[in-house]
Write a protein that binds this DNA or RNA. Structure first.
Lengths: 338, 338
DNA sequence: ATGAAAGCGCTAACAA
DNA sequence: TTGTTAGCGCTTTCAT
């Protein structure tokens, strides 16, 4: 392994104890916010800590306390492409804000399909107290493996297959609202660029969309799947236009794909929204600055991160009666494209 | 602090030793890839490890070995807005890929201005072996503080003020190339939306731009600063058009600002590139899907992350003669906007 | 090349 | 409410 340098040590708990005139145990109790410490002792310890600039050694705490005081954020995608996604960035921000103030560190881990075993073995040997899983492609082997070793886990986004606690945007309802909006605009031939078939988010948004059209007694035969990239969105749009040159609206299951789709529409001389209305999903950073500004379904990804973290920490704290899964509301953001 | 649950333990080093028929010390040597281990013993240990699914306890290693086997990625920005930036995502990906295979964990930390002291105290007490700093706004107090405690540090992007080792894109040369490109296109009134004055990246790109115009004996009076957001880019563009309605080219110091600037140009009926040529910087995910596709200066942010990490690990390994700072090349990516 | 033994700095019974 | 003591699971001298 890499040679990492040794660091100059700071003050130990022993020294804090001496300065505060108490025992190590009392200092430990203060640090861990336990009861049965007199106000007098507590203050003395706090003063000593401040004076010495003491910060407890995490390794020693973890070793003695049988807890890592850390959770992992596991990004389960081969390419790590997900890191470039504003979605991930938002989740990260939410996780971080929820962690602020608690003394829990965040370890970022990426699971390459080649080293799933290593990852599981690492996670299982007490290095972290729990894990947040993000961007599960379909039936990720990670899920059953982690479930088996009993590591508390919360998934961001509904995982396909094995049931684990998860938090997700209400993708079904959001897509339903998108479809209803297009219908209410009087559009007659409504298509969709759906997400990947092997992701729950793709399936859920497609279900909601179909439900919206069936409510209005409209056909839902114009479905092409994309891969959550602008290029994928562009290709899907081309195929849709081939299938149905007269389509007058399209629900694109992710803003980032909508970007590519709109480029194709522009290139083919279709005016947005006059000829083709476009609704995206996510309300990512791309939406407001698209040309024209994109009408979309907003999901609060930061809230998603916060909620996942809250759920995991609650479970680690042994809270009872936690809901196995949570759906966060979405909302329609009307802009110029539809 | 948060109650994090205790985890069921895996096999200990002792058990590996028993199964392999050697002592704990030998197992430790194998794990740490030390010399003076017979091939025979090494193999036996590897077999035992595989058989038992052993994974060493990080806390114990850190405690006994006086090294954390972890580095921190410190995101120094109040709002955490930087997390939404594709730049950050790219750096993160690079850091991660460079770390792959080494047994070094990545801790993600965000520095709120209110808790800089806490952060420094945390970083200084041996929880990490070194730190990667990202997105330093101007003269960040973090830099001198970390320098003082002697924590090995590498900054991503040139920090203003105090000198610490850093890796950065060659912003000056990139902006110079952008300016030259606009000049070569025959543009006569070339403006720029520069970055914030208090960031080195803003200053460096502005310098390069000015140099490019002065080479061509052109005036460089059309400068307005933006804040690396689409809205900031839009406001800056409006001001530029007010100052000089006849400008025929603009270098926008970040793609994300260019998005806003282009929206303003569209709104005012200026055609891109016929009336106004636009060049961005970064070649972020926004560039290719902008309308029209954005000509820009590419910086390889992933390489930036990799290089920072390499530099830090090399220093931790005690390598001598490391360059204090490194500039990564940029390149002009021609698309439709200029 | 290998093993025995002494901690690393803290928490967690237990006793007081 | 507080202090004492015994580890947590490793790495690291120091012998051998």
């Amino acid at each position: 392994m890499t040679e990492t340098a040794k660091r100059r040590p700071g003050p130990r708990i022993e020294e804090v104890a001496r300065v505060a005139g108490v025992s190590k145990s009392t200092v430990s109790r203060v640090i861990n916010d336990e009861q049965y410490v007199s106000a007098r002792a507590r203050e003395a310890v706090h003063a000593a800590i401040a004076q010495l600039g003491y910060s407890p050694n995490q390794a020693a705490r973890a070793l003695a306390g049988h807890r890592a005081n850390a959770i992992a954020l596991v990004v389960s995608e081969p390419s790590g492409r997900v890191l470039g996604d504003p979605f991930f960035a938002g989740v990260l921000r939410g996780v971080h804000s929820e962690l602020a103030g608690r003394h829990v560190q965040l370890l970022l881990m990426m699971s390459q399909p080649t080293d799933t075993e290593d990852l599981v073995s690492y996670l299982s040997s007490g290095h972290v107290d729990g894990a947040l899983l993000v961007s599960l492609h379909g039936e990720d082997p990670l899920v059953p493996m982690l479930a088996e070793i009993g590591l508390p886990v919360v998934s961001g986004g509904r995982p396909l297959g094995r049931t684990v606690p998860f938090v997700d945007a209400d993708n079904f309802s959001g897509a339903l609202e998108a479809a209803r909006h297009l219908v209410s605009l009087g559009r007659k031939r409504i298509a969709t660029v759906a997400g990947p078939k092997d992701m729950a988010v793709g399936a859920d948004r497609l279900s909601g969309f179909k439900r919206g059209l069936s409510e209005a007694k409209m056909a839902n035969d114009l479905v092409v799947h994309g891969d959550f990239t602008p290029e994928g969105g562009a290709r899907a749009m081309e195929r849709l236009l081939q299938k149905e040159p007269h389509l007058d609206a399209v629900f694109v299951a992710a803003d980032i794909m909508a970007l590519g789709a709109m480029q194709v529409l522009h290139a083919q001389g279709r005016r947005i929204p006059q000829d083709v209305a476009v609704v995206g999903f996510d309300d990512s950073v791309f939406a407001a600055t698209a040309t024209p500004p994109l009408t979309t379904i907003r999901q609060d990804v930061e809230e998603l991160g916060r909620t996942m973290t809250w759920r995991l920490l609650a479970e680690l704290a042994g809270e009872a009666g936690l809901p196995p899964s949570l759906l966060l509301p979405t909302s329609l953001i009307k802009r110029a494209s539809a």
